[in-house]
């Protein structure tokens, strides 16, 4: 009797906070907020451009890196709307083709960082004790360094290349997700629905997989969206320093770096790739903000 009562109490007080909000709901929020709408449109355009890069670029071969000495350093013209670089490659095509690594790499980096970071955080937060200590001290080790500095050191040690830069970013990024997940998992582990599951003898691994992790998804999703933008920025930074994408492959950060000696006269060489980074990063940030609004229950009380 008493047990039944308390269980019904628990249910009324403490339903699992799993996200029941549907895509429709997210779409509603986005449509209501012009800024969110704008950022979503930008991101959709960005995805579209990246997928059809080779069809959209006026000079796909040059965009991918083929030099064309005859047209070196042309000013903007109808044929080359934002001019050509010092190897005679059409800048617009370069920027368009460079959207591919700018799309793929952040997705891979963030995805792997979540795959590594989130389960560790969930275990640490749920189990607590010495396991928590060990995992969290390891993350502290990584978080003790400024993020970009750590990524730079790892990338330098591994050598130049896009794949190596991506590894460096994953290695320096996962601890953030561990922290985030741990804090949520720690509070979830004290909630009645988790305690109830534990009390009826559900194994820890199942609790983590079925109860803890699903409830961490929305904050992770919000964070990941914002991070997609930040990874693009970090990639650009590494490429600017010569640690990321290697020429002749196109990359926005690399293009900013290549054009910087021309900044007094041919300012467009650095400005447009920089603008591309700026717009995409801003769009991801705004979308992340919107998603936070959607998932944050306080806003809808």
């Amino acid at each position: 009797m008493a047990i039944k009562e308390s269980i019904s109490n628990i249910q009324s007080l403490d339903t699992p906070p799993q996200s029941r909000r549907t895509l429709v709901h997210i779409a509603q929020v986005i449509l209501r907020d012009p800024l969110a709408l704008l950022s979503t449109i930008i991101i959709i355009v960005f995805f579209f451009v990246a997928v059809f890069a080779y069809q959209l670029a006026p000079f796909p071969e040059q965009g991918a890196g083929k030099s064309n000495p005859a047209t070196a350093m042309l000013d903007p013209s109808p044929e080359h709307p934002i001019g050509t670089d010092r190897l005679g490659r059409d800048m617009l095509s370069r920027i368009i083709i460079a959207s591919r690594p700018a799309l793929v790499v952040p997705i891979v980096v963030v995805f792997l960082a979540v795959i590594i970071g989130a389960p560790l955080g969930a275990i640490a937060g749920y189990k607590g004790g010495w396991l928590d200590e060990v995992i969290m001290r390891i993350t502290d080790l990584f978080l003790a360094f400024p993020f970009l500095l750590l990524a730079m050191s790892i990338a330098t040690a591994l050598g130049r290349g896009l794949d190596k830069a991506a590894i460096a970013l994953i290695v320096s990024w996962w601890p953030w997700y561990t922290r985030l997940t741990r804090s949520i998992a720690a509070s979830l582990s004290q909630r009645y629905f988790v305690m109830a599951a534990r009390s009826i003898g559900v194994r820890d691994s199942v609790i983590i997989l079925r109860h803890i992790l699903p409830n961490c998804i929305s904050p992770i999703l919000v964070q990941a969206t914002i991070d997609l933008g930040l990874v693009i920025l970090a990639m650009g930074g590494l490429a600017f320093l010569g640690l990321g994408t290697q020429p002749p492959a196109p990359d926005w950060g690399l293009m900013v770096s290549d054009g910087r000696t021309f900044i007094f006269k041919q300012w467009w060489l650095s400005t447009y790739p920089g603008l591309a980074i700026f717009i995409v990063v801003l769009a991801f940030n705004l979308l992340g903000d919107t998603l936070r609004d959607v998932f944050d229950p306080r806003q809808y009380r």
Binding site: S67, P69, R86, L87, G159, R160, Q246, P247, P248
Partner: peptide, 28 residues
């Protein structure tokens, strides 16, 4: 060298020779 290496690569490609460019620090 950064500017001229791709020119060699692209020109060798015309005679069927593939060049893989490795840009590394001089001491490496």
């Amino acid at each position: 060298e950064e500017r001229l290496a791709p020119l060699i690569k692209d020109s060798f490609a015309e005679i069927g020779v593939t060049v893989n460019i490795e840009a590394i620090q001089f001491n490496q």
